[in-house]
Design a protein around this nucleic acid. Structure first.
Length: 194
DNA sequence: ACTCCGATGGTCT
DNA sequence: GACCATCGGAGTG
């Protein structure tokens, strides 16, 4: 693993997010999600698994039935976050893509922790690093994301995604998405080959 | 390694 | 009242 240092100057700009959702989902692989607390400590980790949820022709997307109170962030301009609760227990973190009115986002399914690992363990309530940020519920929990974070943008010192590692397309696997029944046959999941 | 299943509550019909 | 973009523990091999 390369040396990592948080650098806001390398943060992805809005132009990165206001693009085709599948492209964004693929290119988020290898980037680093950075979150800083007021106390000063920072969490950072490399995104290793994502799923695209499209505005059109995708019945699994929360946006498929139109705008509602829950999915409203998906209909904003790309570059903000959409967090929802699933199964009454877990939260899932999404990065909104494309232009306002579309209704699309990328689910962050797994992250390789780089900084603030002890804090992540605390937040998760585990001591093992193995599956610390693996699975969308665990990603949200280890980064302390909740629905209160909806609509927050990724262009601040305390929350951004920065350029880091650019995997070759060959190192990224594309598969069907996990845990859905509708539109399940479409391959919209991207995963860094280890 | 695997499969099965319960927890738990917001959202929408 | 049904449906969930999940997780982890129990049971089995």
């Amino acid at each position: 693993m390369k040396l990592f240092k948080p650098d806001f100057n390398k943060a992805l700009k809005q132009g990165f997010y206001i693009r085709n959702t599948e492209k964004v989902a693929r290119e988020l692989i290898g980037k680093v999600l950075v979150k800083k607390f007021d106390t000063g400590d920072a969490l950072a980790g490399m995104i290793t698994e994502t799923e695209a949820y499209l505005a059109k022709g995708d019945l699994a997307s929360h946006s498929a039935t139109g705008k509602s109170k829950r999915n409203a962030p998906m209909f904003e301009d790309g570059g903000i976050i959409y967090v929802y609760m699933i199964y009454g227990i877990h939260h899932c973190l999404n990065i909104v893509t494309e232009r306002a009115g579309e209704g699309s986002a990328v689910l962050i399914r797994a992250i390789e922790p780089l900084l603030g690992i002890d804090r992540m363990k605390e937040l998760r309530g585990v001591s093992d690093i193995k599956n610390l940020c693996r699975g969308p519920g665990n990603v949200a929990k280890s980064y302390a994301f909740s629905r209160e974070d909806n609509f927050k943008d990724l262009f601040h010192q305390n929350l951004f995604i920065q350029d880091f590692y650019n995997p070759k397309p060959k190192e990224i696997i594309k598969t069907k998405r996990i845990g859905i029944t509708k539109s399940a046959e479409i391959e919209l999941r991207y995963c860094l080959k280890i």
